[in-house]
Design a protein around this nucleic acid. Structure first.
Lengths: 213, 213
DNA sequence: TAGATTGTTAATCGATTAACAATC
DNA sequence: TAGATTGTTAATCGATTAACAATC
C-alpha cells in the first residue's frame, strides 16, 4: 500500500485496524486460519460492511468462500500500523496508572514497546518495574534521546502534567498520550491524544440515566 | 431542559459537556466568575463555535460582553449529566488499573461515586482502599443490589472479563465500562463502553509514523 | 462608533450503512 | 443451482465549520 494512501486512511479506520489485529492475534493463537467479515464484526460489535470496507481501504482481498486469511491480514495491518524499526514509548509517572500501563503492555507488541518509566519520587525509581527501566524525571531528556523514544505517556498527577509535557516536548518527543484530566498544550508538530476516565464514566452514567427513564 | 431533548443530545456533545464542566470547576475554584467561548475552546483544543453550539444545544445563554456565567453553566451541565439521587459505580478487579480508577475518582464528583470494589483474590479484599469498601467477587450480586449500584467498571485480566461481565449483568447493572482488551457481550438494555489502552497507543504511534515521513 | 462577542442557520466534511453486482 | 460471501458505489447520517445577523 503506498505511503500517501496510508496517510489518508480515516482515523476511525486506524482505531479499528488496531482492534481487528488484537482479535485476529487471538484467533491465530487458537489455530484458526481464516475468518469471515461477520465474525470480526460480531467480536467488535460493529457491522460486517464496516469491516469489509476497512479491509478494502487497506487494499486486502479475501476469498469468497473462506473469508480472510488471518495471518496475511495480521501482517498487512502490521505494515500499516507498525514501522520496521519499531517505535519506543515511555511512561512518566510511576503511580497505579503508570504501572497498569507498563504491566498491561509488557510483551504485547513487538514493534511498539515501553522502554522507560520516569518519576520525580526517588523512592519509585530504585528498581525496575516489569523489566522496564525506571529513572528520575531529571534524566528524561537524556534517556529519551539516548534510547530514541518518540512517544510519552503521561500518568502523573494533573498538577504536574503541564511541566511534564514541556519536558517531553523539549526532549524531542513526537507524540503524547495524556491520561491526566488536565488538558495540556503542545506545538503543532507533536501529536496529542487525551483521555479522561471521568469523562468516559460520566458518559456511561448519562446513558444509564436517559435510558432508564 | 426537557427530558426528550436531553435524550437526543449528540454523543460528542455529552463528552464535551463533561470536559467543559471539568475545566469550569477549575476556573471556579480559582475565583473566576465568567468565561468566553474562545477561552473554553482554547483549554479543550477545539473551536469557539463548537463550544457555543454545544451550549446552545443545552439551552443556556451567555451575555454578550461577559461571556458565560461559570456557576450557572456548571449547574446546568449538572442537570444534564447528573441525577438528583446520584449514580453509583463499582470497580471489579483491584489491580493497578482498578486502584488507579478508585484513587483518581475519589471525591471528584458528588453525584457519581465508586462505592465498592471487588476481586477474586482474598488477599486483596482484606481492607478498604481509599475509603472504598472492598469485597470478594462472590458477593458482587448481593452488594450491587444492596447498594443500588448501576455501573460496573471492569479492570480484571482479559481472560476474566467475560465471566465478570456476566456476573454484572446478572446482578442488574445498567452500564459497563470495560477496560480490558477483550470485547465483551451484553444484552441490549445494558449500555457498554470499551476502552483499550493498546489501541490508543497504536493510534498515536501511527500518526507519529505518518507525520515524520 | 468600532470591535468583540453570542446565537443560529446553512454548508461542508467525515463516517456509516444500504444496495447490489460479482462469484464461488 | 441456491445461498453465502466479498467488494464497491451511492445514499444517508452525524458532526463540524463557515457565514452572518444581532447586540452590547
Amino acid at each position: 500500500m503506498d505511503k500517501n494512501k496510508m496517510k489518508h486512511l480515516p482515523h476511525k479506520t486506524i482505531e479499528r485496524l488496531s482492534q481487528y489485529r488484537r482479535a485476529l492475534l487471538l484467533c491465530h493463537a487458537q489455530g484458526q486460519t481464516h475468518i469471515f467479515s461477520h465474525e470480526i464484526a460480531k467480536i467488535q460489535h460493529i457491522t460486517a460492511v464496516q469491516v469489509r470496507r476497512d479491509i478494502m481501504l487497506i487494499g486486502y482481498t479475501g476469498t469468497l468462500r473462506k473469508g480472510y486469511n488471518i495471518e496475511e491480514l495480521i501482517a498487512l495491518i502490521g505494515r500499516i500500523l507498525d514501522t520496521d524499526e519499531g517505535i519506543k514509548a515511555c511512561v512518566v509517572g510511576i503511580g497505579n496508572l503508570g504501572r497498569a500501563f507498563i504491566n498491561y503492555f509488557k510483551g504485547k507488541r513487538t514493534k511498539l514497546s515501553i522502554v522507560a518509566a520516569f518519576d520525580n519520587n526517588p523512592n519509585k525509581v530504585v528498581k525496575n518495574f516489569c523489566n522496564t527501566e525506571t529513572f528520575h524525571i531529571d534524566e528524561l531528556e537524556r534517556i529519551v534521546k539516548q534510547k530514541g523514544i518518540s512517544i510519552g505517556i503521561i500518568t502523573v498527577s494533573p498538577e504536574a502534567a503541564p511541566e511534564v509535557t514541556e519536558k517531553l516536548v523539549k526532549a524531542g518527543i513526537k507524540g503524547i498520550l495524556n491520561y491526566t484530566p488536565k488538558p495540556v498544550n503542545v506545538p503543532a508538530h507533536v501529536y496529542l491524544e487525551e483521555y479522561d476516565m471521568i469523562t468516559s464514566l460520566e458518559k456511561v452514567a448519562f446513558f444509564v440515566k436517559t435510558h432508564s427513564e
